[in-house]
């Protein structure tokens, strides 16, 4: 029973990664330039190979961003940046 369960878990993970690999190949060839402006400037072959493994794992995140048409990496959320952002948003509302 336990052996069957472990088997199924590995099959599921294997399926997820197989889908991911298929996506990752397409992503490193085309998608990465659309999502990141630095990659648009230049994306060497070594770089594309280097990001392939993690693209295989994080493919749902990358697919969502690609489909939503994002062309820039997201802004990081730190206390100062968030405070500055909310202050400028309030100012815009006032104006």
């Amino acid at each position: 029973m336990f052996e069957q369960l472990v088997n199924w878990i590995f099959v599921a993970v294997g399926g997820y990664l197989a889908l991911g690999l298929g996506f990752a190949v397409v992503f490193v060839l085309r998608g990465v330039r659309e999502l990141d402006p630095t990659a648009r400037e230049r994306a060497s072959v070594g770089f594309r190979l280097a990001i392939l493994p993690a693209s295989t794992v994080f493919w749902p995140l990358l697919l969502r961003r690609w489909l939503s048409g994002q062309h820039e990496p997201p802004e990081e959320c730190s206390p100062h940046r968030c405070a500055a952002c909310s202050a400028s948003c309030e100012q815009k509302d006032v104006v």
Partner: peptide, 19 residues
């Protein structure tokens, strides 16, 4: 360790954001 090694490139820093 694999997840960390695979995301060690600066592309992932920008994509995931530093925090």
């Amino acid at each position: 360790l694999f997840l960390m090694a695979a995301t060690s490139h600066d592309f992932w820093l920008a994509t995931l954001t530093p925090p």
